[in-house]
Structures are given as structure tokens and as C-alpha cells.
């Protein structure tokens, strides 16, 4: 009886170590992450990733979408660095006063080059893109999850 118990525990331990090799490594960004690539690629900069989740923890939607005047459309605001430096859009907070200043280029310009403007995981993306499980990024295709490759 005691043997069986030890054996069960041993089996569990073995299973845990086996799981290690089975954990799938799919690539999935946050719901609502916006990639903005109006000018970045042409300017030789990485496209911008705007994390909605990070900002809504700290601000209500109204602050950016009513007070600062961001339209509800990814890529629809014609944001440029000069406008930001003059205090428009991101520059209304990212001025070294309310939030860190724009000198920290790489904190926003952080998407792989060539990533198109998009709202990540949006319904529209699911309806339009051929396969929603793959990120729209052209540079870094997702590694298919181990679970789905075995389905073919």
C-alpha cells in the first residue's frame, strides 16, 4: 500500500518534469494593444505599440479620448513626433511632468519593423485576417502551439 503511494507521488513528479517539455510557446499580445505604423517604417523607426491595458489602469478612457482628443480609431489620429513634442496627443502627458518624456524612444517604438497598424485581437482582425491565431506581424511569425500542430 505504502509502495503504491510513493509510486503515485513519483509518477506525479515525473509528469511535472515532462510537462516542462510540452508547454507551448505561442506568441500572444494583450487584447487592445494598438500598433501604430503611420510613419514609423518610412522613418526607419520601429512601429509604436500602445498598451491600452497599462493606460486604463491609470486613466479613464475619457482622459485621452475626450480631453486630449484621440479619435477612436487605430492609426486615425495622424500622430507625429513634432506634434508630440509640442504637447499634442502622447505629448500631453509624456512630457517629463505627468509621465516620462519622449526621449525614451525605445519604450514606445518597440514593435518589430514592418508590423502593420492594428488593434491586436480585435473582432475585426478575426473577421479579416486569414488566421487569427497568427499575429499580423510580418517579421516574427508565431511559433504554432504544440497543441494545434498535432491537429493537422
Amino acid at each position: 500500500m505504502w509502495h503504491r503511494k510513493v509510486r503515485t507521488v513519483a509518477l506525479c513528479a515525473a509528469f511535472v518534469s515532462l510537462l516542462t517539455t510540452l508547454v507551448a510557446t505561442g506568441a500572444h499580445a494583450e487584447y487592445g494593444d494598438v500598433v501604430i505604423n503611420n510613419y514609423s517604417d518610412t522613418a526607419g523607426m520601429r512601429p509604436v505599440v500602445f498598451p491600452h491595458w497599462f493606460h486604463r489602469v491609470r486613466f479613464r478612457c475619457k482622459v485621452c479620448h475626450a480631453d486630449i482628443g484621440f479619435q477612436f480609431k487605430a492609426g486615425g489620429n495622424d500622430i507625429t513626433m513634432l506634434k508630440i513634442i509640442d504637447g499634442e496627443f502622447c505629448g500631453a502627458c509624456h512630457n517629463g511632468d505627468i509621465a516620462w518624456p519622449v526621449e525614451n524612444c525605445a519604450l514606445c517604438h518597440s514593435a518589430p519593423p514592418g508590423t502593420p497598424t492594428q488593434v491586436h485581437e480585435s473582432t475585426l482582425q478575426k473577421l479579416v485576417s486569414p488566421d487569427s491565431s497568427e499575429p499580423v506581424s510580418t517579421k516574427k511569425p508565431a511559433e504554432p502551439a504544440a497543441a494545434t500542430t498535432s491537429e493537422k
Binding site: H28, A111, P135
Partner: peptide, 9 residues
């Protein structure tokens, strides 16, 4: 690791 940020940046 999220696939939307460049891991080389």
C-alpha cells in the same frame, strides 16, 4: 514574449 514587441529592442 508577446509577439508584438521586438525582443531585440
Amino acid at each position: 514574449e508577446d509577439g508584438i514587441h521586438d525582443p531585440t529592442s
